[in-house]
Design a protein around this nucleic acid. Structure first.
Lengths: 127, 127
DNA sequence: GCCAGTAGGTACCAATTCGTAACTTGCAGG
DNA sequence: CCTGCAAGTTACGAATTGGTACCTACTGGC
């Protein structure tokens, strides 16, 4: 292909950057988590589950995820319209990473808790 | 409004959220990547490598990472002061996940490129 | 004597972002 | 007839955020 000069910026960490920019969105992980654990859902269902998100945000996040090919949007033009969102195979590829992240996060949480209880036990006057 | 300390937003699926909030920062992954690949570095070195980040941002990101225990800050009060940053063991735990993410990102990029070249082959007159 | 460099801190400014509220279409219920 | 739900879209506004410029303290070079 172009072994010559694609003006690739020096970002060797770029593919990761793209994917992180996706997960970065404030509610993104909640949405993915819900789609994963509760299966395909309609807009209102999802909105009720995420609890706190505004319709605008949810729409925007879903569009972004759809654009990245992580979420599929099924629109049925019935009255009232029924829009169902589900994870694509790409979306499911992320499950693993998210699970991994959650694992690390949980481990750290546990370690921190242990650390705090150790300090709480003896250090009241130490500092 | 609320005179009592309202416990901010409480979320059930949170351990991952914490860790993602860390990686979310605009430059965070670049910083971690550089610390990983080039080893412990001084502030100016890091700043030159990341190329484009402002001192303010870099400082703030490093403080956040330090606070989370991912990065260690060694301050030697020489003249001029020498401050060296390095990954902690926790920081290295993230290497795996970031590598995993980069892998997925790269794979998707490749797939997308293949997709585009397939379309490019036949659709020149289609639009 | 002045400037550059090291490792930042602070003030201010512009841009982005997220939430709230109002509007959309078509039908069902009171 | 009016309201509400479905799944949004749009307008407006407030808050956060990231960049730029300027400040520190100290020393070595010209």
């Amino acid at each position: 292909m172009n072994t010559t000069a694609e003006p690739r910026k020096e970002s060797a960490s770029c593919p990761m950057d793209f994917i992180l920019r996706m997960l970065m969105g404030p509610w993104t992980t909640y949405i993915l988590y819900n789609l994963k654990t509760h299966g395909p859902q309609r807009f209102g269902e999802l909105k009720r589950r995420v609890a706190g998100i505004s319709a605008k945000m949810l729409t925007e996040r879903l569009r972004t995820l759809e654009g990245a090919g992580l979420v599929r949007r099924d629109y049925e033009a019935t009255i009232p319209p029924r829009v169902t969102y589900s994870l694509t195979s790409r979306g499911h590829e992320l499950d693993d990473v998210l699970g991994y992240l959650a694992e690390i996060g949980t481990r750290w949480e546990t370690e921190d808790a242990a650390q705090r209880s150790l300090q709480g036990a003896g250090l009241k006057a130490a500092e």
